[in-house]
Amino acid sequence: MTRRTALEPLTGLVVDRDAVRRTRPELFDELLSDPATRLLPLWHGKALMTDASAGALDLVTPDRQSAALVRVYLGRTLLAGLEPVGTPVIAVTLTDAAAAELEPDESRWADLRRVGTGLSERDYALFCEAVAVANWHESHTHCPRCGTPTVVEAGGWVRRCFVDGREVFPRTDPAIIVRVLDDRDRILLGSNAMWENNRWSILAGFVEPGESFEAAVIREVAEEAGVLVTEPRFLGSQPWPFPASIMVGYEARAVDVGDVALTPDGEEILEVRWFTREELWAERGDLLLPGGASIAHAIIADWYGGPLDGPPGGAAR
C-alpha cells in the first residue's frame, strides 16, 4: 500500500466519486446487492479498524450491518487496499446500539486525527471523505431557510427541503496555513489560546469572502503576529474535516524583520516566536508540535529537513 510522505499528502485522486451514478433512485439497492460493495462504518466520527493497532480501515460487507442513520456513496477506489481497485464504498453512520452490535470492542474504533498518519493513502482519503460528509449531514438536518426537516438524496450528497424542494449541498470552508520564514531561514510558530501553553504550530486562518488565498496569507500573518510577508507560494493542500475545512498550504517571506518585536493578537494567538532548526531540536522535550496526520506537520518537517523526532537534516534553503 502506498504511504504518504512530505508535501504530497492527501491531494491525490484515489477515489472515483462516481458522481453520475449518485442520482440513480435505485443506487443503494444496486450497491447493497453487489457482493463487491464494502461499507465504511462511522460511530461518533470514528471508523472501524481491522485491529486495535489501527493499521487499516475495516470495510465490512453489507450483510454485517443493516441499519444506518445516514448512508453516503463515497465512490469506487482507484487504489488497491485489502480490497481490489474499483471497490464501491458506502459510508454508514451508526447509532450506539448498531455500533456495539457490529463491534463491541471500542479499541477497534479510531479517530482520524489519531490514526491518519499510519493509514494508506486510499484509507485516509476514504476516512476523510466519510467524516466530512457525515459532519455536514449532522449539521444540516433542517432547511437553512425555513427550518423544515430535509430528506437525503443523490447517494447522500444532497439534502432537499420538504416545503419548497430547495436543495442543500455539502460545503467546504477554505483556510490558509502558512510557513513564514525570515532572512535567516527561521520559521515562525505561534501558540494558540485554545492549546496547551507549550504547543506550537505555523499560523492559519479562514479565507474571508471576496479574498484570494494569497491575500488571506498576508492578512492572517499580519493580524496574528504583526509580521508583513511577501511572495506567498503554494505548497499543497489537505482536506481537514474538523468540521469542514480545506487547508491550503503556503510559504511566505517576512519583510524587514530586523529587531522588530513580534505582536501576537492576544486573543487567538498568545505567543509567537522565530525558531531555528537547531532550537526546535534542542527544545524538543518542552515543545508540542502538530501531529503527523496534519499538513502543518508536513510543512514544518519539509523545512526541517526530516522527521521532527530526529535531528535536523536540511540545509538552509
Rank of each mutant, 00 (worst) to 15 (best):
V70K: 10
L287I: 10
A56D: 03
R17Q: 15
D309F: 11
S53T: 09
A222T: 04
L59R: 05
T23G: 02
E267V: 10
R122G: 04
R233Y: 07
I177W: 04
R76Y: 10
M194V: 09
G226S: 05
Y250A: 05
P241Q: 02
F169P: 01
G266N: 08
R160N: 03
A134N: 04
D182C: 12
E153V: 09
W200I: 04
E283D: 12
G310T: 11
G12A: 15
T2N: 02
L39V: 03
A175G: 12
V72E: 08
L102Y: 04
W109T: 02
L181A: 08
L57E: 07
I246W: 10
R166N: 10
E8Q: 15
A56S: 10
A222D: 08
D185W: 15
A54L: 11
N198D: 12
A47G: 07
N135W: 07
S201I: 08
V272Q: 07
T77V: 13
G305Y: 03
C161T: 11
R4A: 11
L181M: 09
E271K: 02
L262V: 10
V257L: 11
A97L: 11
M194D: 13
T148K: 06
W43H: 06
D183E: 15
R71H: 13
R113G: 05
R184H: 15
E167R: 09
V115G: 04
V163A: 10
P311I: 15
R253C: 13
E103K: 11
R64A: 12
V217K: 08
G291K: 14
G285Y: 10
D18W: 02
T141N: 03
E211K: 05
V15Q: 01
V260C: 03
W281M: 01
T77A: 09
L112I: 06
L287N: 10
P209S: 06
V158D: 06
P290S: 00
L181H: 11
D18E: 13
